[in-house]
């Protein structure tokens, strides 16, 4: 009985907090223009055609980057960096004329031994297991962002991933294509639909996801859910990200 009452109280409080939170989100009418995404949400396979403004620093869980001369940005994937996978990315603007923005990104990730086992929780498992060997990942991509209208932006990314298996895994090149439709609602919010194919003619997996993005002048929060379909299995998981835009 005590537990039931406690649960009711707790549920009530959580509900109230949730209502207040969403109320604030949706009635917020401060004029604000949503900044274009310059990093992408899903790791490795998503990119955009945008770069950060000059001397703008973005510190986020799904990417940390610094804008240079409005034409380039340099950054890392910080969570992977802490999970025994040090990495770096450099992105260069190739073309920008409304409504198009096109950029290329070069990256390098060294997955150190045991990186695949560095999860905090044992409730998550990686397909790739590298207990005693390292792996080098060299992704190169071209991203294009297209402003269809003031409420719709399309981000496309064509990526080529070179994997060096250091004698354990085969060295191989895998192409991938991603497309993200960003529906920009109100001033601070957008809803995104994510689709990607990894492998293309040598198909490996298909990604399908949806996400939500909140952005203020200095803070960003993202929450999504993604499926990974393969010929013999399927995985799904949420994805969360938040970051601070500083200048």
């Amino acid at each position: 009985m005590y537990f039931r009452n406690y649960l009711k109280k707790l549920t009530g409080r959580v509900f109230k907090v949730a209502v207040i939170y969403f109320l604030f989100l949706f009635v917020d009418a401060i004029p604000f223009s949503l900044a274009s995404d310059s990093i992408g949400f899903y790791p490795l396979w998503e990119t955009t055609g945008n770069v950060l403004e000059h001397r703008r620093l973005y510190l986020g869980t799904n990417g940390a980057a610094f804008g240079i001369a409005n034409t380039a940005q340099i950054g890392v994937q910080p969570v992977s960096f802490m999970y025994r996978a040090p990495n770096i990315q450099a992105k260069f603007l190739l073309f920008k004329r409304a409504p198009w923005s096109i950029a290329t990104q070069l990256g390098a990730t060294q997955m150190l031994e045991q990186a695949s086992r560095a999860f905090l929780s044992p409730m998550y498992t990686s397909r790739l297991d590298n207990p005693d060997f390292s792996i080098t990942l060299l992704p190169v991509s071209i991203g294009a962002s297209y402003d269809v209208s003031d409420w719709l932006q399309i981000h496309q990314g064509l990526t080529g991933l070179t994997l060096l298996g250091h004698g354990v895994l085969k060295d191989e090149f895998t192409p991938g294509y991603s497309v993200v439709a960003e529906l920009m609602a109100l001033n601070h919010h957008s809803a995104l639909i994510h689709v990607a194919d990894v492998g293309l003619w040598k198909h490996d997996l298909t990604l399908l996801g949806i996400s939500y993005r909140y952005q203020s002048s200095w803070f960003e929060f993202r929450l999504g859910y993604f499926y990974r379909f393969r010929s013999t299995g399927m995985q799904s998981s949420p994805l969360i990200g938040f970051g601070f835009s500083l200048s």
């Binding site: 869980t61 990186a115 929780s121 990686s126 895994l169 191989e172 990894v198 993604f226 938040f242």
Partner: peptide
């Protein structure tokens, strides 16, 4: 966000999206 993002969803998505083959 801190409590969730600092956990495992990002590396879970990252590592399970790497295509690779052994011998």
């Amino acid at each position: 966000s801190l409590s969730l993002a600092s956990c495992d969803w990002i590396p879970y998505a990252f590592m399970n999206s790497i295509p690779f083959h052994g011998d």
